[in-house]
Design a protein around this nucleic acid. Sequence first.
DNA 1: ATTAGGG
DNA 2: CCCTAAT
Length: 618
Amino acid sequence: MEANEAKIEESVVPVTDTIGALEKEIADPIVYQLVRVDGSGRLVPATQDEIMVVEDFLEDDKCEPKHVPDTRHISESVKTERYLLERNPFQVPEGKLESEYPEVGAEKSNVLVDPVPDLGKIEAPEKVAVHGLAPCSEVSNFDLSVRTEVGSNPQDAPNEDAPSTSAAGSSLKPDFSKLEGKICLDNLTVKELQETFKAAFGRETSVKDKQWLKRRITMGLTNSCDFSCTTFIIRDNVVVRKGEEQICHRVKSRISADSEDGVAKPDSGGSVGDHDNRINDDADFSGADVSSSTFESCKVTKDLYTEQRTAKRARKPTKRYIEELSEIESRESSEKLSSPDKTSRYRFACPETHKRPTKNVRSNARPLVTRQDSLGGSGVQIPFVSRIRRSRPRENFMPLLKLQPCGMDMSTRQVSSAFAVSGRQEDDKINNDLINTSSSPGWTQQPLIAACEEDKHYSGMKIAELENDIELNDCSENNSDDNVVTVPTQKGGMRRKHHRPWTINEVVKLVEGVARYGAGRWSEIKRLAFASCPYRTSVDLKDKWRNLLKASFVQLPAEKGILNSRKQASVPIPAPILSRVRELADMQGQIQPILSTGKSSGHSSSGRSVHEARSGFL
DNA sequence: ATTAGGG
DNA sequence: CCCTAAT
């Protein structure tokens, strides 16, 4: 990969024949060097993130590092540029070129000097384009300047490797002394790769994935100025001395040259000097002869490209994969290296998540602790990543427990326990409200009422204020980890990452909302009662209501046998609530629109009447 | 944009 | 929950 190394050297050393250089470029393995051009035209090493982006972008265009035509891309704003290039191989280049180069003082832009290692894929045209864009001589020239800049720039270091961020500064210093002689990454065992990794990055890694390691190493070294200072370069996944590399190049050049039948080098003989000049002239970006050489280059590339294609392409690990591994890695290293604080923190975090299984189990049978194994494939557990966080334990749990002792039936008990886990005061308010209102109609909730009686005052006062501010209530769930819940979907809008179990609290709010605004006014309810719950769309409310309704009708009959509810495997919605739901269902059809009618219509009205009335209303 | 309903 | 059709 490290074609660049060779390049640098070249600049110092006599670059004897330009053609050779040119060839070399074509034959060289490719290396990504992502840099950004700042306002003053200076080249700033790209951040790991930027690199990632690019990688991602190029992901599909990669093939094996080996046998990759040494093309060097200089493109800015890779995404668009590249796209353009693919579309318009022969045009985009020139125009863009000028405006983009630093000297021109282009605005901040990303420049990708990129002899791509695993590029050379199906996009032959692209390469072609690239060549057109930057005539080899110029390219290499540019490349050199970049190199130099970067190399001397201290900022280059950080750019080296992302996961290393957490590594202790001390051990960060790479130790290339361990990279003696030539190393073929392909032949190394995982362990050896890890060693190499350590040597290269100065930190340990536990990653077992060869691909990843190799990639990381090559990538890292490529971008490492430390390494740049060594006499090694990376080529085809093999770390070799620069000298050897040169030889390689020469050979390859020759070969390719021959195979090209001279087509590859238009100016082969005469323009040698020309090339040299250009190489030494940073400012020479005139697209003058670009076009001419472009075509030839293209041909070469194309052919080479075709050859390479035969090799099977290795799938690059996805960005996410890398990130995750990195994450794990950094955690590991931080655990080792960092102060005990962190460790202890984790220790606390863990138990906490387990402490509240109740909450998770409640309404939906679904365990929802899933986060724990979100790393899935890798088989690694990431229990304490921020994502898991849940609402804090309820402080006022005791007062609620008071309900338990009062000979409640199971259903009631569930209600209270549900309260307990729902966490937060408003829950109480709401729940109590529910209980009161629902009990008032005089349904089958005697036990509950009784149980709550002594608590009435406690809840009662709140009810008053609550009556008017259902909408003001926050969902107890609307805590921070909600952010993570919604995830962008490639094909469509946002998708919820995990099911968000409805808390009784929410259910209550929904029920109350329906009671107030009527079933069907989902957007209203959403706006007023669930304003604080960004998740829970009106559709969600609707769906939930649908479910509740269904559940209520199913469960109500069974409600006689209170113990029944207990038998339910997932006993989500407390019977009282369901009662209320059904009650509302009835009301929806009749009294809901106009309160006055309330009295006449008994709860006797059956589902059918409900539907009728409802349809009439809606 | 909101709703209703099916998947 | 997601998606779609109908309003």
